[in-house]
Design a protein around this nucleic acid. Structure first.
Lengths: 191, 191
DNA sequence: CACTACATGTAACTAGTTACATGATTCG
DNA sequence: CGAATCATGTAACTAGTTACATGTAGTG
């Protein structure tokens, strides 16, 4: 149930409506945790029932309202508890590895093609992560700026560096994978 | 539905019973794709209904039988088709990254501890993958040996190297992640 | 007035998890 | 004869996917 904790982490920076969160998880947060609209709305209501967040109905025009959710005391405690606990890594389940393990069953050309796709995906992911890392380092994302308004200014640089480091890690892993795949292409080309 | 393709890939090397597959996916194959017993049995029956595999009942004692599944012609075609197609990467969903992104919300000591756990997990995963890589290079796993009996001996080295390379990649990614986490520990320790 | 963005939902489905259930065979 | 291993299942659940559904408000 990490979606709940991802939502808590975002809402801690800035109270948001379901709609805001949907957009956020379709863009920036989507690099880390993907969640479709149909999952976010019910989850928010479950979290409200559980007392982790509180919904506040704001009028938007005469007939339309948006419900803005804020993390409650209980939600903060839960988030804190979860963040401070080491969790078991999920079971491995990467379809690409299943594919790669069976490259000997298809032609070298076909395998090269699959690897080529993989490489461009990974390079793209790395570039995106690096761009986001730089934006964070420059404190140039709206969520980070809002988050920092409630933090001691002396900590701002440190917080930005910590967040940026996460995307640095994502980028490095993607580059490592791309480099590995290029070696795989060379292996396939041999003899 | 990659479980189906993972099962096809294993059964192509050697026909097996559900029980054999359960044990296999609890050990070696578990590094790549995890699947519990309660998922494997129903999946096998669905695959049989779909004509991808064929079940053969072998007597084991007077009252007990085991059903040994073999990949059918149709199953081979499906596997071949799937292996030769580049697939979109699944949506990112790593709870650890959610945790790391919010390290600024817990104390440096707590974050250090979570990272320390992460590092030893990754080092262990890397060591396991490297060990398996070496076993494959030495053609020292029973499944690989069985698989090779149906391949041209001239290709044996190449096939072993290809499979080993997958585990080399897993190991490198794990080492990259561990190295990244150590940098994170240094970042947390600053100022 | 049409189009886009805002805002919130539901229904039906697949995949995966946790736990329970049952009996046969082999080995020490 | 008791324990481990062989062998196969089911039930109830959570998480996530895909598709559909509905109406409001702002902008050109």
């Amino acid at each position: 149930m990490s979606l709940q904790h991802a939502l808590l982490g975002v809402l801690e920076a800035r109270p948001m409506s379901g709609y805001d969160l949907v957009r956020f998880f379709d863009s920036s947060a989507g690099w880390i945790w993907a969640a479709p609209q149909s999952q976010i709305y019910p989850t928010l209501r479950r979290m409200e029932r559980a007392g982790l967040i509180g919904g506040d109905d704001e009028p938007r025009g005469p007939r339309l309202t948006r419900t803005v959710y804020t993390v409650t005391e209980k939600g903060l405690e839960e988030l804190d508890r979860w963040l401070a606990t080491p969790h078991d890594p999920g079971p491995p389940r990467d379809p690409f590895l299943v594919q790669a393990l069976n490259f000997d069953m298809i032609s070298a050309e076909q395998a090269q093609h699959v690897l080529a796709q993989f490489i461009s995906e990974q390079e793209k992911a790395a570039a995106d992560a690096e761009a986001h890392r730089d934006r964070l380092l420059a404190k140039d994302t709206s969520l980070l700026r809002e988050r920092l308004t409630r933090r001691d200014p002396a900590d701002h640089d440190r917080i930005a560096r910590l967040k940026a480091h996460v995307f640095e890690g994502i980028a490095r892993v993607a580059r490592t994978r791309a480099e590995w795949a290029r070696e795989g292409q060379r292996l396939l080309g041999e003899d």
